[in-house]
């Protein structure tokens, strides 16, 4: 009896269908894993490139203007056009989608790393230099930890965007869950389109929450300030100084 009604929801092409989840679970898992792998690879590569770029942009004003405007131009290009522009270089492959996502993420990451580094209070920097910190130690022990909130904010935005933009990769058969959506469109297979879409949103939200948790773990001092956002903003100077003290204690 229950099998018959479950079958009928597939046959009736309903939006929500338990039988679809059961019979296609393998296909769904595979697409989800693909989706995660594509997104994670892209973000990983983007972080590796964004760091040196941001440091370069900070060192030389000229490079800064160039890098910022180049990444802004890249960010303005619509996803479909971006993938299409990369087609002659990569052909129909997963590298095409990854390259496109890396280019998008770069914009967000470089900007946020720069904002984060700029927000480091001068007093903190000078205090560290006064204590005899070298340039590298200053960067890793003082500036980067203080830049973490802005940096993590960028990482979260980049990751959530990448999860959603991966779907467009369906046009070159490498869209993770997007493939399922694209394939189901022509046959009006409602259950598959809805399930894949919902999974995609869930992936984005999960990634965002995981990164938020990571940020909380990495920056305990931002919670210590307590209260609303306004108070934190007003007390930015004092908060910065506390953070440096915390750092010295742990470093």
């Amino acid at each position: 009896m229950s099998a018959a009604t479950a079958q009928s929801c597939l046959a009736a092409n309903e939006w929500i269908c338990g039988e679809y989840l059961r019979s296609r679970s393998e296909e769904l898992t595979e697409a989800t894993v693909d989706h995660v792998v594509i997104t994670a690879t892209s973000i990983g590569i983007a972080v590796l490139i964004a760091f040196p770029l941001a440091l370069l942009a900070r060192r030389w004003r000229l490079a800064s203007a160039g890098i910022l405007s180049a990444t802004t131009v890249l960010y303005t290009i619509p996803t479909l056009a971006m993938y299409a522009l990369l087609l002659p270089m990569f052909g129909i492959s997963v590298s095409l989608v990854i390259c496109g996502l890396v280019l998008y993420s770069l914009t967000i990451l470089v900007r946020n790393i720069l904002t984060g580094l700029d927000s480091v209070p001068t007093e903190a920097r000078e205090a560290a230099i006064g204590l005899g910190y070298g340039r590298t130690r200053l960067l890793f022990a003082v500036e980067l930890p203080l830049a973490l909130p802005a940096l993590m904010a960028g990482l979260r935005i980049a990751t959530v965007s990448a999860v959603s933009l991966t779907t467009v990769g369906a046009i070159v058969d490498n869209g993770g869950l997007g493939n399922l959506i694209y394939a189901a469109m022509d046959s009006y297979f409602k259950a598959q389109v809805l399930t894949a879409s919902v999974l995609c949103v869930l992936l984005a939200v999960t990634a965002d929450l995981l990164l938020l948790g990571l940020q909380r773990l990495l920056t305990p001092w931002t919670r210590a300030a307590g209260g609303g956002r306004r108070r934190v903003r007003r007390a930015a100077g004092a908060e910065g100084r506390d953070a440096v003290l915390d750092n010295r204690a742990t470093a």
Binding site: I157, V160, S161, V163, S164, L165, T167, V168, A170, G178, I181, Y182, A184, M185, Y188, K190, V193, L194, A196, S197, C200, V201, A204, V205, D208
Partner: peptide
């Protein structure tokens, strides 16, 4: 705005179309 970013444009277009 943040919520909008998590929703794939492509998925919404296809959902509305079918």
């Amino acid at each position: 705005s943040n919520a909008g970013r998590a929703v794939p444009t492509f998925a919404v277009l296809v959902l509305l179309t079918i």
